[in-house]
Design a protein around this nucleic acid. Sequence first.
DNA 1: TTGACATATTCTTATATGGGAATGTAATGT
DNA 2: ACATTACATTCCCATATAAGAATATGTCAA
Lengths: 130, 130
Amino acid sequence: MARASTTSDAFNAVAEPRRREILSYLAGAERPVTEIVIALGMEQPSVSKHLRVLRDVGLVRMRCQGRQKLYQTNAEAIRPLHEWAATFERYWQHQLHRVKERAEAKMRQASAQTNDQNPHPGKSKTETKT
Amino acid sequence: MARASTTSDAFNAVAEPRRREILSYLAGAERPVTEIVIALGMEQPSVSKHLRVLRDVGLVRMRCQGRQKLYQTNAEAIRPLHEWAATFERYWQHQLHRVKERAEAKMRQASAQTNDQNPHPGKSKTETKT
DNA sequence: TTGACATATTCTTATATGGGAATGTAATGT
DNA sequence: ACATTACATTCCCATATAAGAATATGTCAA
C-alpha cells in the first residue's frame, strides 16, 4: 500500500511545508488566491491544488466574492493535531526534569571532586545556569 | 516532485497512523520490538520499518539490551509539532467566540420574537447555556 | 558449532503524490 | 459578443512510499 492520501486527514495534509505556509498565511484573514500566490511566491496552479487539499480536509474555508474566492484557515481543524501532540506533554516534561536532575547530579559530583574538602556542596550561588 | 520523504521531518513521519500508534505506545516506557508487534498487531518487518523512520527523525530512541532493542518515544521531538499547532490557538478561540456570540444573538432574537411584548430581552436568567 | 530467538533489510508492487505546462471555466468590464 | 481577470483542473512524470514475502544480521544458549 502506498502512503495515505493527503486528503485523508489533517495530519497528512499538513505534512507538506507549502501547505503549512498557506495555513499560517490564511490564519488571521481571508485572502484571494492571487494574494497567496504573490505573498508566498508559488505558482498559481500549485496554490490552487494545495488549497483543494486543505479544503478537502476542512483546514480552510472558502467564500466566493465576485470573480475571486476568499480563503481562510479554519483553525478549529488544527485542534485535533494540537491535542494529539499535547498527549505527549507530560512525557517531555518528565524527560526535561530527568535531564535537569542528571545535570545537577553531575554538577554536584564535579563540585565535590573539585573542592574535595567540602563535604556539603549544596547549591552553589555562582554557576547555576547550565 | 513527489511528496517529501517521511524521514525529512516529524510532520511527515507522524502523517502515518501506524507510526502515531507506535509513538503513543512507546510514550511511557521502553519496549522491545516484539512487544510492539504483539500489542499493536502489526507485522514485525512493518514495525521495524516504521521504527526506522521514527528513529531517523528523532522521534524514538533506541537502546540495545542483549539480543533485543528497546525503543522509547522521544517526546521532545514532538514539541515542534505541538508548538506549530499552538500558533493557531488564538484563532480557534476567536472562532469559537464568534460562534458563541452568533448563537446568543440568534437566541435573543428568537426570545424577542416569542414574547413580543417584552421590549427588553436582556440576559434571560434561564437558558444561558449552549 | 549449531540452533533458536530478536530485529533489520531487500525486493517487489500498487498507489499517491507535487511541480510544470497547458487548458478549462466562471465572472466582469466595455 | 469579446477580451480580461481569477481560479481550477488535467496531463505527464520523477519520486516516495507501505505492505508482504523472503532473506540477512546479530546475540545468546547448549
